[in-house]
C-alpha cells in the first residue's frame, strides 16, 4: 500500500483462495462474491449453511468458505428444508440456477415456499442451460435462439417463459421476493442490499425469502460480456422487470 492511502475494498475473507472457474463476465461469480460479502459483514460465517445445486454452480462449495451441502438435481429446496428444521439457529441458503429451480425442481421449490420454510433462495436466472451447452430452459425468452431452438423459442408450441418471482410472491408464507441484477454497479449494490435484507428477515423468522437474479450467460448466449449486458437491458428486463414483489410489513420488522 502506498503511503497516505487507506484500504477501502478488498476481496472478502469468506471466499476461498481457489480461482473461480466460471466464464469471464458471468454473474455467478458476482453473486458468490456478494453473498460472501454479506456473510462477512453480518459476522455469520460460522452459522451459515449453503446448499449447492447441479448446474454451472455445482462447485460453489469450492469457492464459498462456509458449510456447504451438495443436493441432488433440483432438490436443493428439500435439502435446505431438512437442514433448517434440524439446525434452526443457522442461516441457510439454497443457491440454484434456472435449470435446477425452475425446471426439474419446480415441485420442491413451490412446496417449500408454500410451507413457508425459513431459508433464503438465491435463484440465478440466465434463461439457458449453461453447463450442458446452451439448451433451451423454461426461462428462455420468446424468440431466443439456443442450440435446441435454432429458429427461436416458439410460444405456440412451448409456451411462454416462467416467471418464478411472480409465481412465488403469491404464496402467503413467503416474506420477501425481489428480482435483482448485476449489470451495472448501481444494480450490483442493490443486489447486495437485497441479499442482506433476505438474511436479516431470515434471522427474524419471517418466512421464505426469495432473491431472483436476472443473470447473463455470455458463453451460452454466444456473446461477449458487453453484448450480454446490452441483451439484458433490451430483452430480459422488459420481460423480467427488476423490482420488489413482496416485502414484510414494517410492524413485523
Amino acid at each position: 500500500m502506498k503511503k497516505g492511502y487507506k484500504l477501502i475494498y478488498k476481496r472478502p475473507q469468506t471466499l476461498t483462495k481457489t480461482r473461480i472457474n466460471y466464464c469471464p463476465g458471468c454473474f455467478h461469480s458476482t453473486m458468490h462474491k456478494l453473498l460472501m460479502e454479506v456473510v462477512e459483514e453480518m459476522g455469520i460465517q460460522e452459522k451459515t449453511v449453503g446448499v449447492c445445486p447441479v448446474g454451472c454452480s455445482v462447485f460453489a462449495y469450492n469457492y464459498m468458505n462456509v458449510d456447504m451441502q451438495e443436493a441432488a438435481h433440483g432438490r436443493a429446496a428439500a435439502v435446505a428444508t431438512g437442514i433448517k428444521r434440524m439446525l434452526p439457529d443457522r442461516y441457510v441458503f439454497s443457491y440454484q440456477g434456472d435449470g435446477d429451480l425452475a425446471a426439474i425442481g419446480t415441485a420442491e421449490t413451490l412446496h417449500a415456499c408454500n410451507r413457508g420454510e425459513n431459508f433464503t433462495f438465491v435463484f440465478i436466472n440466465n434463461g439457458i442451460y449453461g453447463m450442458t451447452g446452451g439448451q433451451m430452459a423454461p426461462t428462455t425468452l420468446e424468440g431466443q435462439k439456443t442450440t435446441t431452438s435454432p429458429y427461436g423459442r416458439d410460444p405456440e408450441k412451448i409456451g411462454l417463459p416462467l416467471k418464478m418471482a411472480e409465481i412465488v410472491s403469491q404464496f402467503e408464507r413467503v416474506a420477501y421476493v425481489e428480482r435483482v441484477s448485476c449489470n451495472t454497479p448501481a444494480n450490483t449494490r442493490k443486489a447486495k442490499k437485497a441479499l442482506r435484507n433476505a438474511f436479516e428477515y431470515q434471522g427474524k423468522k419471517l418466512g421464505t425469502t426469495f432473491i431472483e437474479v436476472a443473470s447473463n450467460c455470455p458463453s451460452g448466449w454466444k456473446m461477449t460480456p458487453e453484448q450480454s449486458l446490452k441483451w439484458l437491458e433490451e430483452r430480459v428486463f422488459p420481460y423480467y422487470p427488476l423490482k420488489v414483489f413482496k416485502k414484510p410489513d414494517k410492524k413485523e420488522v
Partner: peptide
Amino acid sequence: VICPDAAITVYKKE
C-alpha cells in the same frame, strides 16, 4: 463492485 472475480483492491487517499 462489478468485478465478478473479486480481483480488484481499492485504496483511497486519506
